[in-house]
Design a protein around this nucleic acid. Structure first.
Length: 588
RNA sequence: GUGUCUGUAGCUCAGUUGGAUAGAGCAUCGCCCUUCUAAGGCGAGGGUCAGGGGUUCGAAUCCCUUCAGACACACCA
C-alpha cells in the first residue's frame, strides 16, 4: 500500500471532526500557501462555525484537541481559524527512504484499473507533419504513460487520416500532373517522393476552392478509393505507405510511440454495419441527398429567423445533424469515427476512449459521441472523452505561421531545438553527441508544450522553446545530471536519509507534491501540474546543492544520507520526466 | 447572429474543493564559483487579477452584465 500523505491527513482530520462532533464530510485539506508556517492547512472551520453556530476558532480548537497524527503530523491553530499541519522530520525521513527504496512507493494507483483506448486524431497521410501536429502525440504520449503508471491498461492508436477527401485530392492532382501514367497503362509512372506529396497536396487543396470540376474529380477519386476500385486503390496504398514511413520517423524522434498504426481506413469493414444500425433503429434520415443523424436534444438547434433569403440559416444552441454519408454515398470523418468505435468495442471493449484532438473539433466529437450512444454502438457505461487541447498560436493570436505565411514543419522545429542544444553542449565541452543533443532539445520542446494547461491555446515562441534556463525541461535534466555526477564522485555510497535541515524538508515536501500531481494530472488530463511540481522539486534540490556541500561532509552518516537524498531526488525526477516522455541524461 | 473557450507583472504563463501578504519563468538591476556541473543559487523592482455590479466573515476563483480576442456552427478532417 503506497504512502499517500494527503489521504492520511484527510483521514486524521475526518476522525478528529467526528470525535469533536462535526460532520466529517466537511473536512478538507489543501497545501499551505505559506510554506514557512505549515505544509498543509485545513480551512473548513469557517464552514463549521456557520453550520453549528459556534465561533470558528472554537471549532478549530476542538478539532485540534481530538487530532491524532501518530507522531507524523503536528497541528496548530492559526488565526482566525486555520488549522495548520506540519509533517514531522521523522515522517519526512520515512517518506524519503520509501522513495529511495522504490520510486513507485508514493504513487497512488487507480482503485479499479480501466481498459483505455487512446486516439490521436490522426496525422493526415499525404500531408507533411507541421507544428499543428506537435501537441497530440506529445500530450497523448504523456497521458499514455501516466495512465499506465497509475495502473490502467492502455492501447494507443494513431488513427491516421487516410480515408477522406485529402486522399482523393492528392491522387487527382498527381494524375493531372502526369505522375500516374503507369497505373493507368498510359505510359510510365513518374517517381513520387515525399517532396512530391508535399507539393501536390497543398496545390490540390487550393485548387479545389477555385476549380469545381477538379473538386468533383477529387470526390470521385475519393469514392473510388473507398470502394476499392483499381487502379485508385493501389495508388492510394502506395502513397499511404510512403507517407506513413515518414510520419513514423518523425514521431519516433519525438519519442512518441503507438501500439496501433490504424487509420480511418481500418474501420472500413465496419462502416456498412454502422450505417445499417442507424437505419434499422430509425435514427438516420435523408437530407439534401446526404444521410444524417439527428443528435440535438430539447432546446438545441432551434432555427433563428433569417433577415433575408441570402442569409445563412443560423441556430440557437447549435447542434446540427451529423452527416454519416455524403450525397454521393462517400464516407466522411464521422462515418469512420463511428465505425472505429464499433471496431474498438468488438476488438477491445474499452471502458474509456480518449481522443487527443484540438478543441476546434469539439462539436464534431460531441455529435459523434451522441450518435454512438443513441445507436448503442457505444455502451452506456463507456466513457467517450475528447481531450480538446488548445492550438499553438503566433503572436497574432492565430494558428502559428512563418513570416511568409506558411506552416512550420515539425522536422524543422525538432532540428532547430536540437541544434540549439548542440551549441550549448559545446560550451560544456561535449561535442559529437547527437543523441544527447536530441534528448535535451526534445525535453525543451515537450516541457514547453506540456507545462501549459492542456485546453488553452498558447503562443509559440522560438526563443522560449530553445532556451534551457529557468522553468524548462533541460533545467530538470541538468539537475539530474548534477546528481548523477555527485553520485559518481561519491562512489554511490548511499545511506539512510535523515531529514534535519530546512533544505532537506523543502525537498521532501516538494517530492510529495510531485507525487500528488500525478493524480491531479490524471483527473484533469493535463500535465501542467506535473511539469510545475517537477520544476519545484528540481529547484528545491538546487537550493540544497548550493547550500550543503555533500562530498566534503565529514560526518559519514550525514554524507551518506545526503547522497541518499540526492539519489532519491534523481529517482523521482527521472520517474516524473518519464511520464512526460522526457529522458534523463547522465551527463550534460 | 448562436454557442464554446480565453482575458492575471514589460513578455510567456501558474494559481488545487472560495481562505492568510496574488506567484513562477524570462527580461532588467545587484550579489554568490580557491570546494560536488553557474544550463545553478540568493536578493530587488514590477499588479485596477479586462471594466462594472452581486453573493460571502472572506472572491483572481461563484452569479449577473459590459468590453476585447480565439474558435466552431451539414456533405473538409
Amino acid at each position: 500500500m503506497a504512502e499517500i500523505v494527503k489521504d492520511y491527513i484527510l483521514d486524521c482530520l475526518k476522525s478528529a471532526f467526528k470525535k469533536a462532533g462535526y460532520d466529517e464530510e466537511l473536512a478538507s485539506v489543501s497545501y499551505a500557501n505559506n510554506p514557512n508556517v505549515a505544509d498543509y492547512q485545513c480551512n473548513s472551520c469557517f464552514a463549521l462555525a456557520k453550520k453549528y453556530g459556534e465561533r470558528p476558532d472554537v471549532c478549530a480548537s476542538k478539532i485540534i484537541a481530538e487530532f491524532d497524527g501518530q507522531k507524523k503530523l503536528e497541528v496548530e491553530l492559526s488565526k482566525p481559524a486555520f488549522i495548520n499541519i506540519k509533517l514531522t522530520d521523522a515522517y519526512l525521513s520515512k517518506i524519503a527512504n520509501l522513495v529511495l527504496e522504490d520510486e513507485k512507493n508514493l504513487v497512488k494507483m487507480v482503485e479499479k484499473p480501466l481498459k483505455i483506448v487512446m486516439d490521436y486524431g490522426g496525422a493526415n497521410v499525404a500531408k507533411e507533419l507541421h507544428i499543428g501536429h506537435l501537441r497530440s502525440p506529445i500530450i497523448g504520449e504523456a497521458l499514455y504513460r501516466l495512465n499506465k503508471l497509475l495502473g490502467n491498461g492502455v492501447i494507443s492508436d494513431t488513427h491516421l487520416g487516410d480515408w477522406g477527401l485529402q486522399m482523393g485530392l492528392t491522387v487527382a492532382q498527381l494524375e493531372d500532373d502526369g505522375y500516374l501514367e503507369g497505373y493507368f497503362n498510359r505510359g510510365k509512372n513518374k517517381e513520387i517522393t515525399l517532396d512530391t506529396l508535399n507539393e501536390e497536396y497543398p496545390k490540390a487543396s487550393k485548387r479545389k476552392e477555385v476549380d469545381p470540376k477538379f473538386r468533383e474529380k477529387a470526390e470521385a477519386v475519393t469514392y473510388n478509393i473507398q470502394k476499392g476500385k483499381e487502379p485508385y486503390f493501389t495508388i492510394y496504398k502506395d502513397i499511404r505507405e510512403l507517407s506513413v514511413k515518414r510520419i513514423k520517423q518523425n514521431y519516433l524522434t519525438l519519442g512518441c510511440h503507438f501500439d496501433l498504426w490504424y487509420g480511418e481506413s481500418s474501420a472500413y469493414p465496419y462502416i456498412d454495419r454502422c450505417i445499417n444500425i442507424f437505419k434499422e433503429k430509425g435514427l438516420a434520415r435523408e437530407s439534401e441527398g446526404a444521410l444524417v443523424v439527428d443528435v440535438a436534444k430539447e432546446g438545441e438547434n432551434i432555427p433563428i429567423e433569417r433577415k433575408s433569403e441570402s442569409e445563412v440559416q443560423r441556430y440557437k444552441n447549435p447542434m446540427p445533424p451529423l452527416i454519416i454519408k455524403k450525397h454521393n454515398d462517400a464516407d466522411v470523418y464521422a462515418t469512420t469515427d463511428i465505425a472505429t468505435i464499433l471496431m474498438r468495442n468488438e476488438q477491445y471493449a474499452p471502458d474509456r476512449i480518449l481522443y487527443i484532438v484540438d478543441f476546434r473539433q469539439d462539436l464534431q466529437f460531441e455529435r459523434v459521441f451522441r450518435a454512438c450512444k443513441k445507436a448503442g454502438i457505444s455502451p452506456e457505461n463507456q466513457e467517450l472523452i475528447h481531450i480538446a487541447y488548445g492550438t499553438i498560436n503566433g503572436k497574432d493570436g492565430h494558428a502559428f505561421k512563418t513570416r511568409s505565411g506558411e506552416t512550420v514543419k515539425l522536422e524543422d522545429i525538432i532540428n532547430m531545438v536540437k541544434a540549439k542544444a548542440e551549441e550549448r553542449l559545446k560550451e560544456n565541452g561535449i561535442v559529437d553527441d547527437p543523441k544527447l543533443a536530441m534528448q535535451i532539445g526534445i525535453a525543451a520542446l515537450k516541457y514547453g508544450d506540456l507545462s501549459n494547461v492542456v485546453y488553452k491555446d498558447y503562443i509559440f515562441d522560438l526563443d522560449k522553446f530553445s532556451s534551457f534556463e529557468g522553468k524548462t525541461g533541460p533545467y530538470i535534466q541538468y539537475t539530474g545530471a548534477r546528481i548523477s555526477s555527485l553520485l559518481r564522485k561519491g562512489n554511490n555510497d548511499v545511506g539512510k536519509i535523515n531529514v534535519e535541515l530546512a533544505e532537506e524538508r523543502n525537498i521532501v515536501i516538494n517530492l510529495i507534491k510531485m507525487y500528488e500531481s500525478f493524480n491531479v494530472c490524471y483527473q484533469e488530463n493535463s500535465l501542467n501540474s506535473l511539469c510545475l511540481s517537477l520544476y519545484n522539486l528540481a529547484s528545491a534540490f538546487s537550493l540544497f546543492y548550493n547550500n550543503v556541500k555533500v562530498l566534503s561532509e565529514k560526518d559519514e552518516a550525514k554524507r551518506r544520507g545526503y547522497l541518499g537524498l540526492s539519489k532519491m531526488v534523481l529517482k523521482a525526477l527521472t520517474l516524473g520526466l518519464d511520464v512526460l516522455g522526457i529522458e534523463m541524461p547522465e551527463k550534460m
